[in-house]
Nucleic acid binder design. Structure first.
Ligand code: FES
Ligand code: FES
Lengths: 133, 133
DNA sequence: TAAAATGATACTATAATGGTATCATTCTGT
DNA sequence: ACAGAATGATACCATTATAGTATCATTTTA
Protein backbone atom coordinates (compact mmCIF):
# COMPACT_ATOMS: atom_id res chain seq x y z
CA UNK A 1 0.00 0.00 0.00
CA UNK A 2 1.59 3.21 -1.17
CA UNK A 3 0.62 6.73 -0.24
CA UNK A 4 1.66 8.13 -3.60
CA UNK A 5 1.53 6.55 -7.03
CA UNK A 6 3.96 6.90 -9.91
CA UNK A 7 2.29 9.75 -11.68
CA UNK A 8 2.31 11.77 -8.48
CA UNK A 9 5.89 10.76 -7.84
CA UNK A 10 7.06 11.67 -11.32
CA UNK A 11 5.14 14.92 -11.16
CA UNK A 12 7.02 15.88 -8.00
CA UNK A 13 10.39 15.11 -9.53
CA UNK A 14 9.52 17.10 -12.62
CA UNK A 15 8.33 20.06 -10.58
CA UNK A 16 11.43 20.06 -8.40
CA UNK A 17 13.55 19.96 -11.54
CA UNK A 18 11.66 22.88 -13.00
CA UNK A 19 11.92 24.88 -9.83
CA UNK A 20 15.68 24.41 -10.02
CA UNK A 21 15.85 25.30 -13.68
CA UNK A 22 13.71 28.44 -13.43
CA UNK A 23 13.36 30.77 -15.17
CA UNK A 24 14.42 28.56 -18.06
CA UNK A 25 11.77 26.56 -19.86
CA UNK A 26 11.89 22.80 -19.36
CA UNK A 27 10.72 20.45 -22.08
CA UNK A 28 9.59 16.84 -21.87
CA UNK A 29 12.82 16.01 -23.68
CA UNK A 30 14.84 17.57 -20.87
CA UNK A 31 13.02 15.51 -18.27
CA UNK A 32 13.42 12.29 -20.20
CA UNK A 33 17.14 12.95 -20.60
CA UNK A 34 17.88 14.09 -17.06
CA UNK A 35 15.40 12.16 -14.93
CA UNK A 36 15.06 9.03 -17.03
CA UNK A 37 11.29 9.04 -17.03
CA UNK A 38 9.30 7.30 -19.80
CA UNK A 39 8.57 9.93 -22.37
CA UNK A 40 4.87 9.41 -23.21
CA UNK A 41 4.01 9.06 -19.55
CA UNK A 42 5.74 12.21 -18.39
CA UNK A 43 4.19 14.02 -21.32
CA UNK A 44 0.74 13.07 -20.14
CA UNK A 45 1.61 14.10 -16.61
CA UNK A 46 2.89 17.48 -17.76
CA UNK A 47 -0.29 18.07 -19.69
CA UNK A 48 -2.36 17.27 -16.63
CA UNK A 49 -0.27 19.62 -14.51
CA UNK A 50 -0.76 22.33 -17.09
CA UNK A 51 -4.51 21.82 -17.25
CA UNK A 52 -4.68 21.95 -13.48
CA UNK A 53 -2.86 25.27 -13.47
CA UNK A 54 0.41 24.17 -11.88
CA UNK A 55 2.37 24.75 -15.07
CA UNK A 56 2.54 27.42 -17.70
CA UNK A 57 3.35 26.04 -21.12
CA UNK A 58 4.79 27.44 -24.33
CA UNK A 59 4.22 25.57 -27.53
CA UNK A 60 6.40 25.30 -30.59
CA UNK A 61 10.12 24.89 -31.09
CA UNK A 62 12.14 25.78 -27.99
CA UNK A 63 8.91 25.59 -26.06
CA UNK A 64 8.41 23.86 -22.74
CA UNK A 65 7.03 24.34 -19.26
CA UNK A 66 7.48 26.64 -16.31
CA UNK A 67 6.06 26.60 -12.82
CA UNK A 68 2.88 28.63 -12.66
CA UNK A 69 2.89 28.52 -8.85
CA UNK A 70 5.63 29.44 -6.38
CA UNK A 71 7.44 26.34 -5.06
CA UNK A 72 6.39 27.24 -1.52
CA UNK A 73 2.78 27.04 -2.56
CA UNK A 74 3.05 23.82 -4.52
CA UNK A 75 1.83 21.28 -2.00
CA UNK A 76 2.20 17.55 -2.30
CA UNK A 77 -1.32 17.10 -1.06
CA UNK A 78 -2.64 18.98 -4.08
CA UNK A 79 -0.69 16.79 -6.45
CA UNK A 80 -2.09 13.74 -4.74
CA UNK A 81 -5.54 15.23 -5.14
CA UNK A 82 -4.95 15.78 -8.84
CA UNK A 83 -3.53 12.38 -9.68
CA UNK A 84 -5.11 10.12 -7.08
CA UNK A 85 -8.23 11.87 -5.94
CA UNK A 86 -9.01 13.01 -2.41
CA UNK A 87 -7.06 11.41 0.42
CA UNK A 88 -9.68 9.35 2.16
CA UNK A 89 -8.42 6.33 3.98
CA UNK A 90 -11.49 5.57 5.99
CA UNK A 91 -14.37 5.00 3.64
CA UNK A 92 -16.76 2.23 4.60
CA UNK A 93 -16.32 -0.77 2.36
CA UNK A 94 -19.31 -2.76 3.51
CA UNK A 95 -21.91 -1.35 1.20
CA UNK A 96 -21.97 1.05 -1.68
CA UNK A 97 -24.73 2.99 0.00
CA UNK A 98 -22.84 4.63 2.81
CA UNK A 99 -23.45 2.97 6.13
CA UNK A 100 -25.79 4.74 8.52
CA UNK A 101 -23.14 4.28 11.17
CA UNK A 102 -20.31 6.00 9.33
CA UNK A 103 -20.30 8.84 11.84
CA UNK A 104 -20.19 6.62 14.89
CA UNK A 105 -18.43 3.47 13.66
CA UNK A 106 -15.32 3.25 15.84
CA UNK A 107 -13.25 1.78 13.06
CA UNK A 108 -14.02 4.62 10.64
CA UNK A 109 -13.40 7.11 13.40
CA UNK A 110 -9.89 5.84 13.92
CA UNK A 111 -9.13 5.61 10.23
CA UNK A 112 -10.37 9.16 9.77
CA UNK A 113 -8.05 10.30 12.56
CA UNK A 114 -5.10 8.77 10.77
CA UNK A 115 -6.24 10.35 7.55
CA UNK A 116 -6.46 13.75 9.20
CA UNK A 117 -2.95 13.40 10.63
CA UNK A 118 -1.60 12.43 7.24
CA UNK A 119 -3.27 15.31 5.43
CA UNK A 120 -2.11 17.79 8.05
CA UNK A 121 1.42 16.56 7.63
CA UNK A 122 1.23 16.62 3.86
CA UNK A 123 0.09 20.25 3.90
CA UNK A 124 3.59 21.19 4.99
CA UNK A 125 5.33 19.27 2.25
CA UNK A 126 5.87 21.61 -0.66
CA UNK A 127 8.17 21.58 -3.65
CA UNK A 128 10.25 24.24 -1.93
CA UNK A 129 10.54 22.05 1.16
CA UNK A 130 11.64 19.07 -0.87
CA UNK A 131 14.30 21.11 -2.69
CA UNK A 132 16.11 21.88 0.54
CA UNK A 133 16.78 18.26 1.41
CA UNK B 1 -6.69 5.25 -1.70
CA UNK B 2 -7.85 3.14 1.19
CA UNK B 3 -5.91 2.17 4.27
CA UNK B 4 -7.67 -1.15 4.62
CA UNK B 5 -9.02 -3.46 1.94
CA UNK B 6 -12.14 -5.60 2.00
CA UNK B 7 -10.60 -8.77 3.30
CA UNK B 8 -9.13 -6.86 6.24
CA UNK B 9 -12.42 -5.09 6.76
CA UNK B 10 -14.47 -8.28 6.67
CA UNK B 11 -11.98 -9.97 8.94
CA UNK B 12 -12.45 -7.26 11.55
CA UNK B 13 -16.22 -7.50 11.41
CA UNK B 14 -16.05 -11.27 11.72
CA UNK B 15 -13.66 -11.08 14.67
CA UNK B 16 -15.79 -8.51 16.46
CA UNK B 17 -18.81 -10.72 15.93
CA UNK B 18 -16.96 -13.70 17.33
CA UNK B 19 -15.74 -11.78 20.31
CA UNK B 20 -19.36 -10.91 21.06
CA UNK B 21 -20.55 -14.46 20.56
CA UNK B 22 -17.85 -16.10 22.69
CA UNK B 23 -17.64 -18.72 23.97
CA UNK B 24 -20.05 -20.03 21.32
CA UNK B 25 -18.60 -21.27 18.06
CA UNK B 26 -19.32 -19.14 15.00
CA UNK B 27 -19.62 -20.72 11.57
CA UNK B 28 -19.25 -19.17 8.15
CA UNK B 29 -22.99 -19.68 7.80
CA UNK B 30 -23.60 -17.49 10.84
CA UNK B 31 -21.48 -14.71 9.40
CA UNK B 32 -23.15 -14.86 6.01
CA UNK B 33 -26.56 -14.71 7.65
CA UNK B 34 -25.83 -11.97 10.18
CA UNK B 35 -23.24 -9.80 8.47
CA UNK B 36 -24.27 -10.32 4.87
CA UNK B 37 -20.78 -11.15 3.65
CA UNK B 38 -20.22 -13.20 0.48
CA UNK B 39 -19.85 -16.77 1.58
CA UNK B 40 -16.84 -18.06 -0.38
CA UNK B 41 -14.90 -14.90 0.37
CA UNK B 42 -15.47 -14.93 4.10
CA UNK B 43 -14.66 -18.63 4.13
CA UNK B 44 -11.29 -17.92 2.60
CA UNK B 45 -10.71 -15.12 5.06
CA UNK B 46 -11.57 -17.35 8.00
CA UNK B 47 -9.16 -19.98 6.78
CA UNK B 48 -6.40 -17.40 6.55
CA UNK B 49 -7.16 -16.17 10.04
CA UNK B 50 -7.01 -19.72 11.31
CA UNK B 51 -3.71 -20.43 9.60
CA UNK B 52 -2.27 -17.24 11.02
CA UNK B 53 -3.26 -18.31 14.51
CA UNK B 54 -5.98 -15.74 15.19
CA UNK B 55 -8.73 -18.34 15.18
CA UNK B 56 -9.23 -21.78 16.60
CA UNK B 57 -11.39 -23.98 14.42
CA UNK B 58 -13.51 -27.07 14.96
CA UNK B 59 -14.42 -29.15 11.95
CA UNK B 60 -17.51 -31.21 11.28
CA UNK B 61 -21.17 -30.63 11.89
CA UNK B 62 -21.83 -27.90 14.48
CA UNK B 63 -18.24 -26.87 13.99
CA UNK B 64 -17.02 -23.31 13.56
CA UNK B 65 -14.49 -20.79 14.80
CA UNK B 66 -13.46 -19.16 18.05
CA UNK B 67 -10.99 -16.42 18.81
CA UNK B 68 -7.58 -17.86 19.60
CA UNK B 69 -6.38 -14.50 20.91
CA UNK B 70 -7.88 -12.17 23.51
CA UNK B 71 -9.73 -9.26 21.86
CA UNK B 72 -7.40 -6.81 23.61
CA UNK B 73 -4.46 -8.41 21.86
CA UNK B 74 -6.02 -8.62 18.44
CA UNK B 75 -4.58 -5.56 16.73
CA UNK B 76 -5.79 -4.08 13.49
CA UNK B 77 -2.22 -3.56 12.39
CA UNK B 78 -1.62 -7.31 12.51
CA UNK B 79 -4.65 -8.00 10.38
CA UNK B 80 -3.43 -5.45 7.86
CA UNK B 81 -0.08 -7.20 7.89
CA UNK B 82 -1.74 -10.52 7.23
CA UNK B 83 -4.03 -9.44 4.42
CA UNK B 84 -2.18 -6.53 2.87
CA UNK B 85 1.43 -6.97 3.79
CA UNK B 86 3.55 -4.57 5.80
CA UNK B 87 2.37 -0.98 6.06
CA UNK B 88 4.92 0.89 4.02
CA UNK B 89 3.73 4.08 2.45
CA UNK B 90 7.05 5.53 1.50
CA UNK B 91 8.81 3.14 -0.80
CA UNK B 92 10.74 4.71 -3.65
CA UNK B 93 8.95 4.19 -6.93
CA UNK B 94 11.63 5.49 -9.25
CA UNK B 95 13.56 2.29 -9.74
CA UNK B 96 13.14 -1.27 -8.71
CA UNK B 97 16.64 -1.27 -7.32
CA UNK B 98 16.18 0.86 -4.26
CA UNK B 99 17.50 4.37 -4.72
CA UNK B 100 20.83 5.15 -3.12
CA UNK B 101 19.18 8.22 -1.64
CA UNK B 102 16.35 6.44 0.14
CA UNK B 103 17.76 7.38 3.52
CA UNK B 104 18.20 11.04 2.73
CA UNK B 105 15.50 11.71 0.13
CA UNK B 106 13.32 14.37 1.77
CA UNK B 107 10.17 13.03 0.17
CA UNK B 108 10.72 9.50 1.51
CA UNK B 109 11.57 10.92 4.90
CA UNK B 110 8.23 12.68 5.14
CA UNK B 111 6.27 9.72 3.86
CA UNK B 112 8.02 7.49 6.38
CA UNK B 113 7.04 9.89 9.15
CA UNK B 114 3.42 9.63 8.15
CA UNK B 115 3.73 5.89 7.99
CA UNK B 116 5.20 5.76 11.48
CA UNK B 117 2.37 7.90 12.85
CA UNK B 118 -0.20 5.67 11.22
CA UNK B 119 1.33 2.47 12.53
CA UNK B 120 1.65 3.90 16.02
CA UNK B 121 -1.99 4.83 15.97
CA UNK B 122 -3.04 1.47 14.58
CA UNK B 123 -1.23 -0.33 17.38
CA UNK B 124 -3.88 0.93 19.78
CA UNK B 125 -6.80 -0.21 17.67
CA UNK B 126 -7.78 -3.67 18.85
CA UNK B 127 -10.90 -5.76 18.46
CA UNK B 128 -11.70 -5.00 22.09
CA UNK B 129 -11.37 -1.29 21.43
CA UNK B 130 -13.68 -1.48 18.44
CA UNK B 131 -16.32 -3.38 20.41
CA UNK B 132 -16.76 -0.53 22.88
CA UNK B 133 -17.79 2.00 20.24
C1' DT C 1 -24.78 -42.50 6.47
C1' DA C 2 -26.33 -37.96 5.17
C1' DA C 3 -25.75 -33.33 6.37
C1' DA C 4 -23.01 -29.64 7.89
C1' DA C 5 -19.08 -27.89 8.84
C1' DT C 6 -13.82 -26.65 7.79
C1' DG C 7 -9.15 -27.43 4.80
C1' DA C 8 -6.83 -26.87 0.66
C1' DT C 9 -6.34 -25.07 -3.69
C1' DA C 10 -7.25 -23.44 -8.16
C1' DC C 11 -9.58 -20.43 -10.87
C1' DT C 12 -11.96 -15.98 -12.61
C1' DA C 13 -13.62 -11.11 -12.88
C1' DT C 14 -13.12 -6.25 -12.13
C1' DA C 15 -10.75 -2.11 -11.30
C1' DA C 16 -6.68 0.64 -10.71
C1' DT C 17 -2.31 1.59 -12.15
C1' DG C 18 1.13 2.43 -15.40
C1' DG C 19 1.93 3.07 -19.28
C1' DT C 20 1.85 3.69 -25.37
C1' DA C 21 0.55 5.58 -29.63
C1' DT C 22 -1.26 8.97 -32.81
C1' DC C 23 -2.49 12.94 -34.85
C1' DA C 24 -3.29 17.81 -34.73
C1' DT C 25 -1.47 22.33 -33.64
C1' DT C 26 1.91 25.88 -32.64
C1' DC C 27 6.12 28.21 -32.88
C1' DT C 28 11.08 29.11 -34.40
C1' DG C 29 15.22 29.25 -37.14
C1' DT C 30 16.97 29.01 -41.58
C1' DA D 1 8.11 28.73 -47.08
C1' DC D 2 9.02 24.95 -44.46
C1' DA D 3 11.22 21.45 -41.60
C1' DG D 4 11.74 20.35 -37.00
C1' DA D 5 10.75 20.53 -32.29
C1' DA D 6 7.78 21.31 -29.09
C1' DT D 7 2.87 20.94 -26.67
C1' DG D 8 -2.55 19.60 -26.87
C1' DA D 9 -5.92 16.20 -27.12
C1' DT D 10 -7.37 11.71 -27.02
C1' DA D 11 -7.64 6.93 -27.54
C1' DC D 12 -5.75 2.76 -26.63
C1' DC D 13 -3.14 -1.15 -24.29
C1' DA D 14 -0.59 -3.96 -20.47
C1' DT D 15 0.16 -5.21 -15.88
C1' DT D 16 -1.04 -5.71 -11.26
C1' DA D 17 -3.94 -5.74 -7.22
C1' DT D 18 -8.24 -6.53 -5.49
C1' DA D 19 -12.24 -9.08 -4.88
C1' DG D 20 -14.13 -12.46 -5.43
C1' DT D 21 -15.90 -18.03 -7.13
C1' DA D 22 -15.71 -22.86 -7.49
C1' DT D 23 -14.48 -27.54 -6.28
C1' DC D 24 -13.24 -31.37 -3.92
C1' DA D 25 -11.50 -33.58 0.16
C1' DT D 26 -11.90 -34.31 5.12
C1' DT D 27 -13.99 -34.24 9.63
C1' DT D 28 -17.70 -34.52 12.89
C1' DT D 29 -22.37 -35.21 14.63
C1' DA D 30 -27.13 -36.57 14.74
S1 FES E 1 -19.81 -0.44 9.09
FE1 FES E 1 -20.04 1.18 7.67
S2 FES E 1 -18.97 2.71 8.77
FE2 FES E 1 -18.75 1.09 10.16
S1 FES F 1 14.38 9.15 -5.39
FE1 FES F 1 14.48 7.15 -4.54
S2 FES F 1 14.23 7.67 -2.46
FE2 FES F 1 14.12 9.63 -3.29
Amino acid sequence: MNLITRNTDYAIRALIYMAGAAPELVSATDLVRDLGLPRPFIRKILQELQKAGFLYSIKGKNGGFQLAVAPEKLRLVDLILLFQGPVSMGDCLLRKKICACTQTCPLRLELKKIEAMAVAHLQNVTVAFLMKG
